[in-house]
Design a protein around this nucleic acid. Structure first.
Lengths: 338, 338
DNA sequence: GCCTGGCACTCACTGTGTGCGAGTGCCAGC
DNA sequence: GCTGGCACTCGCACACAGTGAGTGCCAGGC
């Protein structure tokens, strides 16, 4: 176990490095922080911290920079979450309040997060898996062609075309619509397959084919859309540390376009808990020199989706965590209202 | 007017510079192209071309690079559109054929364009303004709460909540739905306002308030959604010329996030015609060292939206134009089918 | 009149060498 | 266990010369 002072030294190193973006030496440390000891002592502490793997030297005659392990300790033990100031809170709320629909809420959230943290923001659309059904609509577009529209409690809408094996009358359509809704409205998406299983049996044999087709399209939609959608913003912020990782910006951009990677990343985190993934803790190669701060958000107590930011491992963790948490809360409120 | 050979020299300069990304000198030019004259002659031609503003020297003892004006001449007079090869065409079609809905079509198109051109791809969602109505649906969610769903011929779906001033019965709802659809289905969005103008008069006075509210929400949706949506992809390709404009990448990323800018850019171009905007021809500052190649696409003869790519002014214009044109065609086909 | 070879000149780029200084590790002493 | 002192390391900035690609110009030839 590291002594109190050594932890203090680590904290100082992280703070200075995040601020200056330059390796920090023993002398500079004692000047900028009231550690109460001489540079020589700090050097000894640094030697220990380095041996334990918390900090490293880029080259022999340079200062130290934190390692991933160092940041990890910093986040877990040394840093709190920096709360937003009241004016910031008000600004967040005002900005989000202007949203007109779900797309707009997500778009505004991304912009807001990117601006607050000055990093890349990622917001997941409310997941269908954890949503409940608000309404299922069936529209007849042609004698043997239907449109299936699925509306979730979070306001998300999905639609699919259905080509029927046989013409389907308006009466049957109304019947199916009514039965379908009475079974699934208010229920969770995950429960839907079971709930509609025996529905074809209630219909005349000539209509059963169509009913089955509609149902399988519905189930397909549920499965397909379980692969969630994301919105990303603030990529221009990546250039702010271009000198930091000049060619590393490319793999990051590539990773960001591979939504699958991001979704997996968000998915790995514990539900509504704030999660910080640092550097090599991230499995994906392109993101090895970045950190991801994410948290779930939702209208009720439960998270329906996640949001977060991607930035350099050298980021202001307390501030970023504060912003992410605050935004998640307000988005949750907005969703609950609409 | 420039002589035939001087145009040939300009073409050679553009081609070489696009290929090598380095200023091209007179000697190298004569070696790589069969111009039939000596370097000294080419130097004289270059001096003329420079005087006329088609090429420039980065510094005194270097080769020449094309100016925006030089690229313009190249695109207008010297270069054709390079058609896609049959295997490429097949690949495009196969890739787009797998799409399941409009979002997917757009997403796949973006990916495809980015991959083909190795540049940033931009695809505009089919515009509501030029679309026709396929169906309007009204759903009752609560006694005084409706959901309005609008479906376009291109498969786009928009939904809005409507809070009614008074409870609205199922009968009235069905009536309104039927009247609304009989009037607007198959009509252009721009004609809708006029077509529904006198609709409230057909209802009992107690329902008129709600009908008006529904209609104004519908009209609002049309107006709001006229501000189009975009999908962007391939931003990682920006890093390919990072050495070319190392700090210029930032304003480009910023401009790409400002969808308004891009939409304006796409909007300025003539309808379905292929348009190339080069360097300073683009009003927006951040995009001054980029070129934009765009073209309209649509299911019928008329364009419903645009797509294109953003790349460095030093790009392979014939190839890019070929790819953009081919993709636009196939997307049009896909939309016509669905 | 246009093209060509020759020539002097420019200038970015590269590699080498040097001095500087921040930072380190170690050690003896308090 | 902390401190001051000291020798050492090494990246970085700067100066400087050599190289070579490229240019403009000019006199001569077709």
């Amino acid at each position: 176990m590291l002594s109190e002072r050594r932890l203090e030294v680590l904290r100082a190193i992280v703070q200075d490095y995040v601020g200056t973006e330059e390796p920090v030496g023993s002398k500079a440390l004692t000047e900028r922080h009231k550690l109460g000891v001489s540079p020589a002592t700090v050097r000894n502490d640094m030697a220990v911290l380095e041996e334990e793997g918390y900090i490293a030297q880029p080259h022999t005659s340079a200062g130290r920079i934190p390692t991933d392990k160092g940041y990890r300790l910093f986040v877990d033990k040394l840093a709190g979450v920096k709360p937003m100031t009241p004016p910031e809170r008000r600004a967040i709320q005002n900005f989000l309040d202007g949203a007109v629909d779900l797309d707009d809420v997500v778009a505004r959230t991304v912009r807001l997060l990117a601006q607050l943290t000055r990093q890349v923001a990622v917001v997941q659309y409310p997941s269908l898996t954890r949503s409940t059904v608000r309404h299922v609509e069936l529209l007849s577009l042609a004698p043997a062609r239907l449109m299936l529209v699925l509306i979730t409690d979070t306001g998300r809408v999905e639609q699919r075309m259905v080509d029927c094996p046989a013409p389907f009358g308006e009466t049957s359509l109304a019947d199916l619509r009514a039965r379908l809704n009475s079974r699934v409205v208010g229920r969770r998406f995950t429960d839907v397959p079971q709930l509609v299983q025996d529905l074809p049996e209630a219909f005349e044999s000539e209509d059963r084919g169509t009913v089955s087709t509609v149902l399988s399209t519905l189930l397909e939609t549920l499965v397909e859309e379980t692969e969630e959608r994301l919105m990303i913003g603030g990529t221009a912020n990546l250039t702010r540390f271009a000198h930091d990782f000049p060619l590393t910006i490319r793999p990051v951009l590539e990773a960001l376009e591979e939504q699958v990677v991001l979704l997996k990343l968000l998915g790995e985190a514990k539900d509504s808990q704030m999660t910080v993934r640092i550097g090599h803790e991230i499995a994906h190669e392109g993101l090895n020199s970045t950190s991801v701060v994410s948290v779930g958000y939702g209208s009720g107590g439960e998270a329906v989706a996640k949001l977060g930011v991607v930035g350099p491992t050298r980021m202001d963790y307390p501030g970023t965590m504060g912003a992410v948490r605050a935004v998640a809360r307000y988005v949750g409120q907005i969703l609950a209202e609409s």
